[in-house]
């Protein structure tokens, strides 16, 4: 953190307070709440923090208690995101998640009592998950009345146990049509429960409950990522840290930068990223960010029911439900060749 502070100071960028803080990527709540609070305090001491800043931690429902959540709230945390994934035991088993589904409502209840905003993460399209299984997961999650839901289609990464099982034919492969059915069901049930989409995979109970930290990624704001494998983006430069925790620790202890690689984003690349990311938001993409050829495509996108006509008329490219499922194809169409 002091490295980050020094770099920002020396680079001549204006001093800024923390707008959002996000503890994630794994299970931060494996650390005692006191330790998490200490880290947050150190960050606030270093940078200062804006009034009403958003401070989130990801959490495993099994690794929180009323006491630990109270400690977090006291330290300045405002939000907790539980990795619920599914309410169906056989699905959790395939995902290799160890928590007990019945602990989730309790954890949500405690967090709410501690005064924290609650988000639930769900995963759909796990091999062996039926549409009825997914409906059950959604209905269960919604019955806990979270402020926010993220629902992601399962991505099978190379090198994981699941990828190997799939290659050997032990579990069925990914079916995009199944994903599409499940996304449509999710959007319908979550919307019926009073939450609205604000990004392709995220729904919130009103704009004030949207995750501001994630929105800052999608709007190209500056952020500093701390930890092994973390990415950062400051002043048009993006870099990423070495992935292995011990390599990361070694670098820091020797006084070396933990960065493994970096890229400087030129204007064209920045525009490409802007189109790619903002098109995924409910607030949409300003059509003027597109090239003339890209703007020319908008009428065709409306004709194909991928883009909302009323929003386009106001100068914003906002995806329809069908368009959200084909967001990458839409982006390819509006970007110059």
């Amino acid at each position: 953190m002091s490295l980050a502070a020094t770099v920002v100071e020396r680079s001549g960028l204006p001093a800024r307070k923390l707008g959002t803080v996000f503890f994630g990527g794994g299970t931060p709540t494996l650390l005692p709440a006191d330790d998490l609070s200490m880290i947050l305090r150190a960050a606030i001491d270093q940078w200062g923090i804006e009034d009403g800043a958003e401070v989130t931690t990801e959490a495993n429902p099994d690794s929180v208690t009323p006491e630990s959540l109270a400690v977090l709230k006291e330290a300045g945390f405002t939000r907790v995101s539980f990795g619920m994934q599914s309410a169906v035991p056989h699905v959790l088993k395939v995902l290799d998640r160890t928590h007990t589904p019945s602990r989730v409502p309790q954890a949500v209840q405690w967090a709410r009592e501690a005064g924290l905003d609650v988000s639930l993460d769900l995963i759909y399209g796990t091999p062996g998950e039926s549409l009825a299984d997914w409906r059950h997961s959604l209905e269960t999650a919604l019955s806990y009345q979270p402020d926010h839901i993220s629902a992601y289609a399962l991505i099978v990464e190379e090198g994981t146990k699941l990828a190997a099982q799939m290659r050997r034919g032990e579990v069925p492969g990914i079916d995009d049509d199944d994903h599409a059915d499940k996304y449509e069901l999710a959007d319908q049930l979550i919307t019926d429960a009073g939450l609205g989409w604000y990004e392709v995979s995220n729904w919130a109970r009103g704009p004030e409950h949207a995750c501001r930290h994630n929105l800052s990624y999608w709007r190209g704001d500056d952020w500093w990522g701390i930890g092994p494998g973390a990415h950062s983006h400051v002043g048009g430069v993006r870099w990423w840290n070495v992935k292995h925790p011990s390599a990361y620790a070694n670098r820091l202890s020797q006084g070396l930068s933990p960065a493994a690689g970096r890229e400087t984003l030129d204007a064209e690349t920045r525009n490409l990223e802007r189109v790619m990311l903002e098109a995924r938001l409910q607030s949409g993409l300003d059509v003027s960010a597109l090239s003339p050829a890209g703007r020319h495509q908008v009428a065709g996108l409306i004709a194909d029911s991928l883009v909302d006509p009323a929003a386009a008329f106001r100068g914003r490219l906002v995806l329809t439900l069908k368009g959200r499922l084909l967001a990458d194809a839409v982006v390819r169409r509006v970007l110059p060749n």
């Binding site: 992601y152 995009d176 084909l326």
Partner: peptide, 8 residues
């Protein structure tokens, strides 16, 4: 029907 990366 689906051509989108869920997580970004």
């Amino acid at each position: 029907r689906k051509d989108v990366l869920a997580k970004c």
